[in-house]
């Protein structure tokens, strides 16, 4: 080390600080967030719960096979009391039976398949759509932004339940329609968040730097801006999954989602309403399943946010900056 600056760049390279040479491979913000998540007990707990639910959903047919109870199989004799009332939890029916003498446990597990499928697929669609439209709106200001933003405003201000009912009565209820309806009513909020983020990120000097080296619009949007809005988007997506699950349950509950006899938590809740005085298990287990699932996703969402942003405010860049 000398006090005079080295005359050549070689020497300059040689004086790179030894303190910094510990790890050559830098850890990405994603990796850092992941490491933080792994050290967060709530995150680990909620992920474990989610994994368990996924596992149970996947294994639903196995459980049904082991118990010898199909999801739509009606046990008129063993599953209903003499008065035709569902039987409570016991050794044959661990979670009791429903009004048609079907096994609530098996149906809850089969319901999880629908809920998770709809939750994940619909949120995924909403996120992809929202990110692309939000990115375009935020990046190209002016007419593009005006049109897209107004469109998002319109979608967000639609009374979604009424429109969902109307749409479903037009198209007829089905799983696909449920997914489409949920995605359609969810993407705009993602789009708005992304647009806001992009508006502030595109003012950063690194975007200008990219322009100054000759990068085109697409490259700037997807290489420079997108990675910076991904973190808040992922957080929002984690929060969107439980919303979609609840949305799907609502649709099913109202009879405009997935049709009976397919088991979904919404269907089961809807059917159980009339029996809640005599058969608490019929309401409680699907309700509990819904609650635990949404809780787990929401908690995980919180943790993901904290992991990306340990100090509490850098993830959502301040727009006034």
């Amino acid at each position: 080390m000398t006090l005079t600056p080295p005359a050549t760049a070689e020497a300059a390279a040689a004086r790179v600080e030894p303190a910094a040479v510990d790890t050559i491979e830098g850890r990405s913000p994603w990796q850092l967030a992941f490491v933080r998540l792994r050290h967060d007990r709530v995150a680990v707990g909620s992920s474990a719960v989610i994994c368990l639910i996924v596992l149970l959903a996947v294994l639903a047919p196995v459980v049904a096979h082991l118990l010898g109870h199909g999801p739509n199989q009606q046990f008129r004799t063993t599953g209903l009391s003499a008065e035709g009332i569902p039987v409570g939890p016991g050794s044959t029916f661990l979670f009791g039976t429903d009004d048609l003498g079907r096994d609530v446990l098996v149906r809850v597990l089969y319901g999880a398949r629908i809920s998770l499928l709809v939750g994940v697929v619909a949120s995924g669609l909403a996120v992809v759509l929202g990110v692309i439209i939000g990115l375009a709106a935020g990046y190209f200001s002016g007419a593009v932004d005006t049109v897209l933003s107004r469109f998002m405003d319109v979608v967000l201000s639609l009374p979604y339940l009424i429109f969902a009912i109307a749409l479903v009565s037009l198209l007829g209820p089905s799983l696909m329609v449920s997914v489409a309806v949920i995605a359609f009513f969810s993407w705009a909020s993602v789009g708005r968040i992304v647009r806001g983020q992009v508006l502030s990120i595109k003012e950063k000097e690194f975007v200008e730097a990219a322009r100054s080296v000759g990068a085109g619009h697409l490259r700037i949007m997807f290489v420079d801006i997108l990675p910076n809005v991904l973190a808040p988007t992922i957080v929002y997506a984690t929060m969107l999954i439980p919303l979609s699950i609840v949305f799907e349950s609502t649709l099913s509950f109202l009879g405009i989602g997935v049709l009976p006899p397919t088991a979904t938590w919404g269907n089961m809740l809807s059917e159980s309403i009339a029996y809640y005085r005599v058969a608490w298990w019929f309401v409680a287990f699907p309700g509990l399943a819904l609650l635990i699932t949404t809780m787990a996703f929401n908690l995980l969402g919180d943790c993901v946010r904290d992991a990306f942003d340990p100090r509490g405010n850098r993830l959502f860049v301040a727009v006034e900056d």
């Binding site: 990068a215 290489v223 420079d224």
Partner: peptide, 23 residues
């Protein structure tokens, strides 16, 4: 701004290579 002018989500190698990639 040495902080604002480098994309925080990209590796420095790819930042420095940006002019090559863009062209």
């Amino acid at each position: 701004d040495p902080y604002g002018s480098l994309n925080p989500r990209r590796r420095v190698g790819s930042i420095i290579a940006d002019p090559f990639a863009a062209n």
